[in-house]
């Protein structure tokens, strides 16, 4: 480049300095406002939940059945128990199948055609809208058995859990370094023992996290329960009867005309959020580093 051009260029660039700096400051400002906007809904939602819901929480709320329409008092004890039962049923099917599929995916080679079909199906399954899962569960677990049931609700939730566990556990098992497997194989252990005894053991915290995330997700699901577990106003411990759950009960109360029930909905919502966020927080705390062997 000619010396003269160079000099002109440098002088020109000095003239634009201030403008560029202003643009930079402006962009920083706009982006930080966007970031604040992005976190404000959480703060707003939590704030409302606490301010409206805290008043509803009481021993009675946690342990009793709903009061009859128009009467104050009563609680969501049956929904709390119901949520636990539903998630338990879901876990009985969802955790073994999810892990099985996760281990299968992690143990099969990247080139395997069948494994890539399974992986694709797991990803598609995760993309199925939860209301569609509800329709499916209605066909598979409600119609043939002649009615809404806790079992059907648990099945629907397990379909939500399975792809979550499968994909997360595959990811976690893939973090296991090759030399760990090789060390096991070098001891003369068959592959299945290496997997079951060494690989899974070393990843147990990560796998627990996968379960925790799936359970947190399932506990908050409403749509798949609407026409599988339905709802109930009574204590229920039976697999074959309709059962209440926190999310469905919140929905029912929120869309009712009763002011007392709105109160109950806020209380239930606070409880549900504490439960779900608590589990997510715990999962995050357990598995912040994403490293093998921790």
């Amino acid at each position: 480049m000619e010396i003269a051009t160079k000099k002109l260029l440098l002088e020109f660039m000095v003239t634009t300095q201030a403008k560029r700096k202003r643009k930079n400051i402006f962009a920083n400002l706009v982006l930080s406002i966007l970031a604040i906007l992005a976190v404000s809904p959480l703060v707003a939602i939590l704030g409302f939940l606490i301010s409206k819901g805290i008043g509803a929480l009481s021993w009675e709320f946690l342990t009793s059945l709903p009061a009859p329409y128009g009467e104050s008092g009563g609680g969501m004890g049956h929904s709390i128990v119901g949520t636990f039962i539903l998630v338990l049923f879901a876990s009985l099917l969802g955790i073994p199948v999810g892990f099985g599929a996760g281990i299968f995916l992690a143990e099969s080679s990247k080139e395997s055609r069948f494994a890539s079909i399974v992986r694709l199906c797991a990803e598609m399954l995760a993309g199925v809208p939860s209301i569609v899962v509800g329709l499916f569960a209605y066909f598979v677990a409600v119609l043939p058995f002649g009615g809404f049931s806790a079992f059907a609700g648990g099945f629907a939730l397990s379909v939500i859990m399975i792809p979550v566990i499968a994909r997360t556990s595959e990811e976690i098992l893939r973090l296991v370094p090759v030399h760990v497997r090789e060390a096991g194989l070098a001891l003369g252990l068959p592959r299945w023992q290496v997997v079951m005894r060494i690989v899974l053991r070393g990843s147990r915290k990560g796998l627990f996290t996968a379960v925790l995330l799936a359970v947190a997700r399932a506990s908050g699901e409403t749509a798949p329960l609407l026409f599988t577990a339905l709802n109930s106003r009574l204590w229920s411990f039976s697999a074959t009867q309709p059962i209440s759950s926190l999310p469905v009960q919140i929905y029912t109360y929120a869309t009712s005309p009763s002011e007392e029930w709105h109160q109950q909905a806020w209380g239930g919502a606070l409880l549900l959020v504490l439960l779900v966020l608590g589990m997510s927080l715990f999962a995050r705390f357990l598995f912040s580093g994403k490293k093998y062997g921790t």
């Binding site: 480049m1 000619e2 051009t5 260029l9 020109f12 660039m13 003239t15 634009t16 403008k19 560029r20």
Partner: peptide, 23 residues
């Protein structure tokens, strides 16, 4: 770099690009 600095004229950019690539 020049574009970010506000240099817009096409022939200036062409000339400089050629000079630098030759260099």
């Amino acid at each position: 770099g020049l574009k970010l600095a506000g240099v817009k004229k096409g022939y200036v950019l062409n000339d400089i690009a050629e000079a630098c690539l030759k260099q």
